[in-house]
Design a protein around this nucleic acid. Structure first.
Length: 568
RNA sequence: GACCCCGUAGUUCAAUGGAUAGAAUAUGAGCCUUCUAAGUUCGAGAUCUUGGUUCGAUUCCAAGCGGGGUCACCA
């Protein structure tokens, strides 16, 4: 509604020869400036008149042509301000949202286009840590955003199951945990062993290197005894990841293992060499010199003949483009790989790949306490974080709801835990670091998931209790509080928030919006009674606003893959 | 050394070439016979420095200072 009003005003202005875009018409910073505003500086300059005069003039030209929803138009200095008829406007917003339901804000810009998005691309035999969690949250949100705008999306996971990390893990298992029975969460156990081994190796590199090299050779030679352990442990990781994916709402359409593309990658390197894109560098290693593009030199094969990360990535890209011919390919990784991806994309471009390739880098996630355990170093495991959050929220919930069954506590707190984790991972722009402060994240105050879910729970409660009002004719004309219009504008703002979050690959725009909306919902909750409204018509109209607000809140949270609860 | 990113209330984050730079926390003072006080109202508090472009710069440009990251055999 808000967007269409802007478009309509822009269209009317275009018709009388004034060149503006709908995005030039904005919601002004303060309510007394009206519901929409247009700044005349630019046009006044072109016309060679002073902006205030231009504004006065424009008001005169437009006043007879405006759509019905605009009650008044006035010049305030160099600005033109538009005021809405609250009744027409609120009714318009509410009916548009309730008609579109969860599709409110979705578009069809991507129909006919396709996209591959690769995340979180964790390794087997290693931990699923807090960084993977952030990766998955960003990935989920982007997948949802692309699908909502009509793209055919292939969510892909590229899992590295073959490399030095596997050797370290298997070595550590033999050295420190030989003969032990793995716990229920064997995936997590492997990750811990990897971290343990990795830390140990760092301090004892010289003495253990021969053992590691020997094990690597055996693995590469597919020694039956080593392969047996490798296959078994890989399966533990894979099964564990599947469980986590389910828990987080990740659905991958395709999972590729590095071992499947490793050999093909070497062929790509041969091809690069044959085409003169790559050449032989120091010590016989194969390199691609990208210094003319300001990207230094990329190593694509070690002097030993072994592949490196980019070797397999090149083959993966080839496979991706061949299989899905995407219009865009997106990779989500930690931000320090930004240079690596610039190199990879440049090499692909030199090979003739034409599709758009995007890398989205995210910043570090840490906890304020710093190191958690000497054995794990700074690694924060997803499972550990999750159970910490769960325990904290469970205490709260039990204190508030002594009558709730264990089952109910478990379900309710489970949803809340998931929401806390996801919201915290997405609250800042991807490229920025996040400090996971337990107290802040699980707090029910401020910029947090519980605050928002609480607002949703309250809205749902009103809807349940006010069922009878549904038969009453809503009296939008009697909504004169001001908060109602404010809420309508915030609800209507979702259309543009979704568009910009999508255009800028920025899930944090959604977390902020959801919080802003929850705040106004809470203000509305306090200011505008429904069950005890001045009249039944007012109550009915407000109930419509409650339903529309709830719909948009749940839609926006849904884009973030966050579920809601009925009660808190 | 080169390249990339960043610098906004005590702290964590927003925003915009334009109206009085928004929130959250922390801090001070209030509000529960009222649809859940896991809430809410009010107060105080910030654009690293110096130049430049502009009618207008926190935003764009340059330099400096400060922080982070990367720069062929690591993933």
């Amino acid at each position: 509604m808000l967007l269409s009003i802007k478009q309509e005003i822009a269209k009317i202005m275009n018709e009388i020869g004034i060149e503006v875009k709908s995005s030039d018409i904005v919601v002004p910073p303060r309510a007394e400036m009206g519901d929409l505003a247009f700044a005349c500086f630019g046009l006044a300059k072109i016309a060679g008149v002073n902006p205030a005069e231009y504004a006065t003039d424009l008001v005169e030209k437009l006043s007879s042509k405006l759509p019905g929803v605009i009650k008044t138009i006035r010049a305030t200095g160099p600005y033109v301000n538009f005021d809405f008829d609250a009744s027409v406007y609120i009714k318009g917003v509410v009916s548009q949202v309730l008609r579109a339901e969860n599709n409110y804000g979705a578009s069809s810009g991507g129909v006919g286009k396709s996209l591959v998005i690769e995340f979180p691309s964790q390794n087997t035999h290693k931990e699923f840590h807090i960084g993977h969690l952030r990766n998955a949250c960003i990935g989920n949100t982007l997948v949802n955003l692309y699908r909502r705008s009509g793209y055919r999306v292939t969510a892909m996971n590229y899992v590295n199951d073959f490399g030095a990390h596997v050797v370290k893990c298997l070595w550590g298992m033999k050295k420190f945990h030989d003969g032990e029975t793995p716990p229920v969460n064997a995936q997590k156990w492997l990750g811990e062993i990897y971290a343990e081994a990795s830390n140990y190796i760092k301090d004892h590199e010289v003495e253990v290197k021969p053992e590691l090299d020997a094990l690597q050779k055996k693995l590469e030679a597919r020694d039956p005894e080593v392969m047996k352990v490798f296959e078994e442990t890989k399966e533990w990781s894979v099964a564990g990841f599947a469980k986590i994916s389910k828990e987080l709402g990740i659905h991958h359409d395709d999972i590729i293992y590095e071992s499947e593309v490793k050999d093909a990658g070497q062929k790509v390197v041969d091809d690069l060499l044959a085409r003169g894109i790559a050449r032989i560098g120091e010590g016989g290693a194969i390199i691609v010199d990208l210094s003319e593009y300001g990207l230094d030199i990329a190593l694509v094969r070690k002097s030993t003949g072994a592949g490196v990360y980019v070797t397999s990535d090149l083959a993966l890209a080839e496979m991706k483009f061949k299989k899905y011919s995407p219009d865009e390919s997106i990779n989500i990784t930690a931000i320090e790989q930004i240079h690596y991806f610039k190199q990879l994309f440049k090499i692909l471009e030199l090979c003739g790949f034409k599709g758009k390739m995007t890398h989205i880098g995210y910043g570090l996630v840490t906890r304020p306490e710093g190191k958690m355990s000497s054995r794990l170093g700074n690694v924060i495991l997803y499972e550990d974080l999750r159970s910490d959050v769960f325990a904290r929220l469970e205490t709260e919930a039990r204190a508030r709801h002594a009558e709730w069954s264990d089952e109910k506590i478990k379900n309710n707190v489970g949803v809340l835990t998931d929401a806390v984790l996801k919201f915290t991972m997405l609250k800042h722009e991807a490229a920025k670091n996040v400090v996971f402060d337990m107290k802040e994240a699980t707090s029910f105050e401020g910029f947090s998931a519980p605050y928002i879910l609480y607002a949703v729970a309250r809205l749902r409660k009103i809807s349940r209790k006010a069922g009878f009002t549904k038969r009453i004719f809503p009296n939008y004309g009697a909504l004169t509080n001001g908060v109602e219009k404010k809420l309508a504008t915030m609800i209507a703002g979702w259309e543009e928030v979704e568009k910009s979050a999508f255009a800028e690959y920025n899930p944090s725009a959604i977390t902020r919006y959801v919080f802003d909306l929850a705040q106004i919902v809470t203000e509305f909750y306090n200011e505008c009674p429904i069950l005890k409204a001045e009249s039944r018509g007012v109550g009915a109209a407000r109930l419509k606003l409650v339903e529309a607000a709830g719909m948009v809140l749940e839609t926006a949270l849904g884009v973030l893959s966050i579920n809601v609860v009925d009660e808190m």
